[in-house]
Simulated scan of single mutants.
Amino acid sequence: MKIKQLSASLAILLAAVFLSGCSDQTETIKIGATVGPHAQVVESVAEQAKEEGIDVEVVEFSDYISPNAGLADGSLDLNSYQHQPFLDNFNQNHDSELVAIGRSILMRMGIYSDKVDKVEALANGAQIAIPNDPTNAGRALLLLEDAGLITLADNVGFKATLQDVQSNPKQLEFVEVEAAQLPRSLQDVDAAAITMNYVMSSGLDPSEQGIFLESKDAPLAVMVVAVRKDDQDNPTYQRLLALFQSDKTRQFLQDTFNGTIEPAF
């Protein structure tokens, strides 16, 4: 009888230990990001989260669809790598309900030049290089309009093409160039509209060669943190958002990217 009672007591004790161990286990939060700067930022957030007892696994991708597909199917909990228009387009094309819960970083397109230090100094007939792909070409034309160099037809938005240029007071000559080659084109043209990823990879300095940058509220410049709609109020995810927008993250961006990538918060 005593042996049976001892065995029963031992079983209860082991069960208690097991359950206690389970309750102490930390859930791993998976955050998707594309390789490069986006993943670097998430790594910084993961280090901060660890200090607060939140275990974050950074899942890196080399394409732009998989981070949203993984979030939609539940294999990821959050992602951070895209702007709102891209997220909206994914939702529309994949019948998904992913939402942004806040801003993370800025990746601004800018007008760069090795010949002048402000857009007003561009001479009549100056050559301006712009990307030759439709999305970035439209973005570049909007940037040139914001800089006061051209005006576009009403409501064309990011779908603008050279045919939508309504006025061009300086008779600027536009040269369409593959986006990756735009930094190298600066030796041949007067200025070029370049996205931040190619600014970074080429070593251009926005503070030295950037003569006009997109607004800090430009939809294609603001990167967001995304989750599934049902999880947008999850307190752990909200805490991670706070870490994306923390002073430590702000300092990390300054120390790591030296002005090329800025806080969007």
Results as ranks from 00 to 15, higher is better:
L141R: 01
T28V: 11
L220M: 02
D24N: 14
S167H: 11
Y81R: 10
L172V: 12
K229T: 09
A72W: 14
S201N: 10
L122S: 02
V45N: 07
A140H: 01
V35E: 15
A264W: 01
V58R: 10
L240S: 06
I12P: 05
D146R: 03
D233R: 07
L253T: 00
S20L: 14
L87A: 03
T135I: 04
E57V: 10
G70Q: 12
D188G: 06
D114Y: 12
V156D: 07
S246E: 08
G102P: 05
A218F: 03
A193Y: 09
G32L: 05
A137W: 00
D88S: 14
P169A: 13
F265N: 03
E262V: 00
L143P: 04
H38V: 04
H38K: 12
F257H: 09
R239P: 03
E47C: 10
H83C: 08
D24P: 00
E51D: 10
V59M: 12
G36E: 12
L141F: 02
P263H: 05
L144M: 14
Q84P: 05
A153L: 11
E120F: 00
V199Q: 01
E43S: 11
D73P: 11
I211W: 00
A218Q: 02
Q48C: 09
Y81T: 12
I111M: 09
E262P: 00
S62E: 14
I130V: 15
V199A: 00
I29Q: 05
